[in-house]
């Protein structure tokens, strides 16, 4: 039996903007812990850096069962595919020997988004230390900073006011 431990050290939720946003959380240490050995099956564990991607609609609903494609830096071929879970999350462990900008695409039924994730090369201490090492959590989102309902309301009101002003301007000119 293999237990997969997923420790979320820090979860930064970044409010979304747009039809769909992918706040990314660089977070976790995934450890495969040895539990059972039978018939000479050897098991090992290693800790590795994993990235959890959270996808949701701008209404706040999680983007569930979306197809996720992960692209390694400077590569057009898919490195890994998967699906988001019921929370709209997808976790993968990037190959740290390929530092650069990893790209994660999520799409379902014509909706979707692309997220760029910077992956740094491993530091010398990371390979030497056997115990889980804390990684600096980072986060990013696909679009600009999220807006609160109040900000959205002000934006909508100002656009409507601009358009009403246009209407009044041309209506007034006619008379």
């Amino acid at each position: 039996m293999v237990t997969i431990l997923l420790q979320l050290e820090n979860l930064y939720r970044v409010a979304s903007l747009g039809k769909l946003a992918l706040p990314m959380v660089l977070v976790s240490q995934v450890g495969w812990v040895e539990r059972a050995i039978a018939h000479s099956v050897e098991m090992q564990y290693q800790t590795t850096q994993a990235i959890t991607v959270q996808a949701k609609y701008d209404t706040g609903q999680p983007f569930v069962n979306a197809q996720v494609s992960v692209y390694a830096p400077n590569s057009d071929t898919v490195w890994q595919t998967g699906m988001t879970d019921q929370k709209g999350q997808f976790t993968f462990a990037p190959d740290v020997t390929k530092p650069g900008t990893w790209q994660v695409k999520a799409r379902s039924a014509g909706h979707g988004s692309i997220l760029n994730i910077p992956v740094k090369p491993p530091s010398p201490t990371a390979t030497a230390a056997p115990q889980p090492q804390s990684v600096e959590p980072s986060s990013a989102t696909t679009s600009k900073a999220g807006y609160t309902s109040l900000q959205k309301g002000v934006m909508v009101a100002s656009v409507i006011w601009g358009l009403v002003g246009t209407a009044l301007f041309f209506a007034g000119r006619k008379r």
């Binding site: 909508v156 656009v159 409507i160 358009l163 009403v164 246009t166 209407a167 009044l168 041309f170 209506a171 000119r173 006619k174």
Partner: peptide, 15 residues
């Protein structure tokens, strides 16, 4: 320009 006022108002509605 006759249709511009209603076009502006309906753009607001569409938006």
């Amino acid at each position: 320009t006759q249709g511009i006022p209603k076009a502006a108002l309906l753009t607001a509605a569409f938006f």
